[in-house]
Design a protein around this nucleic acid. Structure first.
Lengths: 228, 228
DNA sequence: ACAAAAGTGTTGAGAGTACACCCATGC
DNA sequence: GCATGGGTGTACTCTCAACACTTTTGT
């Protein structure tokens, strides 16, 4: 009797789709895969797949992410669930979207196979996307900017040790605007979330101070990084 | 062939659960229903139900909400999706949680039936909850406070015309602290989101100015209402 | 007259913004 | 010596926070 209620209703399929951001060549990029099957054959899509019965939503997202990028331990958070009746022409499919931030140095993309091609796209030059993935992408970008403004997630896109210059450059890429160098540095340092490391060597200019995020701060902490 | 992929994986059940907040007797309340069936028989739970194949997630949440409270047109937004493997002992059930804000004057609770009882609980005196509903509730409360701080959603809990006093009282209830009257009024008025209405009559004290939210502002707009 | 809530201004502290030049290194 | 990013301070403005008394009405 208890289980009856679960079988009484037709069940939708559930997928997870993960928008994976990285920073490459001074540009903000997302990973897309080219579909090799109908529907939307040869269109680009956000990587994802079906949730298995023995894994949680987050586990599913992590598994798919690792399958696609060979990377573990990236920053991952749930974005939103999309469940319009007709979002997938094959039938009723609800997707739980995630967004991830990966340091591009640590990513080893699986080589493209017959089954699919994967490629990094600049967010300013996205191709047409399958399903409702354009909506998901817009949602992810909004969330990314918000997270950059109010939390420490940005540091997950940088190596452990970084310069204030590279941090500022990253913010300028994500917000597509310049910040005043003195004000930016003053603001970041006043947050008391960084600790000094060594001085970088062998650079063709004045050697910069390296910083790292204080261990006790952690990724994702809310701190109002940038007040525009 | 296209449909094969949907049947290849066992499909989970999908529900929507909606945390419905209201303001009653100077207290922040949520609507809970008492379960009449196992599992968790006689425990209190967040109202919800299964998503039908022919309705979107939001439509499902609206339908359930109307069934429970007889109210349409309340503020409703998606909260988060919870999908731990063992969150429901009956089997794999993923729930998409919503949160809603309803003006208590406009709510007509369905009378309790054999099937279930519904009751408003003060958020400071919640009973033990079924499933993972405690987690969902905590999540909803966090989101509520955030939304009050940064957006205009609060106005959906008030009648169309309200006094600054009642607005401040509501904020004090939600944040469980006092605000300075002069600073609060100054801040709200400086946002330029209100318009003046009549003067309230027949009150046993100085008659207050009534205000309403400017039509062009709308519920949910981001404005940094309160900077604590 | 008194109870009850409405209404009203000023000041000091801290944060945000605008702005320009010198520094240390590799080549 | 020159190209390249790194590093630094001040003055103005604006917002936030603290704080107490008078007004208008109904009873």
């Amino acid at each position: 009797m208890e289980k009856d209620v679960l079988t009484k209703f037709p069940r939708p399929s559930v997928t997870v789709d993960t928008v994976i951001f990285t920073l490459k060549n001074k540009d903000l990029k997302v990973l897309l895969i080219k579909r090799s099957l109908e529907p939307f054959k040869d269109k680009w899509a956000i990587p994802g797949g079906f949730v298995r019965v023995d894994e949680s939503l987050e586990e599913a997202a992590k598994r798919e992410l690792e399958e696609e990028t060979g990377v573990k331990g990236v920053y991952l958070e749930q974005l939103y669930s999309f469940g319009d009746v007709k979002r997938d022409p094959r039938g009723r499919v609800i997707t739980v979207a995630y967004f991830a931030l990966a340091n591009s140095d640590s990513i080893i993309l699986k080589p493209s196979t017959d089954a699919y091609e994967a490629e990094w796209f600049s967010i300013s030059k996205l191709p047409p996307l399958a399903f409702d993935h354009k909506t998901i992408m817009e949602y992810a970008l909004k969330r990314l900017r918000w997270k950059f403004e109010y939390t420490t997630v940005a540091f997950s896109l940088l190596p452990k040790k970084f310069t204030l210059g590279s941090l500022q450059e990253m913010y300028e890429i994500v917000f597509a605007r310049k910040f005043d160098k003195r004000n930016f540095r003053k603001k970041i340092l006043s947050l008391d979330i960084l600790e000094e490391g060594e001085i970088m060597k062998d650079v063709p200019h004045r050697p910069p101070q390296l910083f790292s995020l204080k261990k006790e701060v952690g990724i994702g902490k809310i701190v109002e990084i940038v007040k525009l």
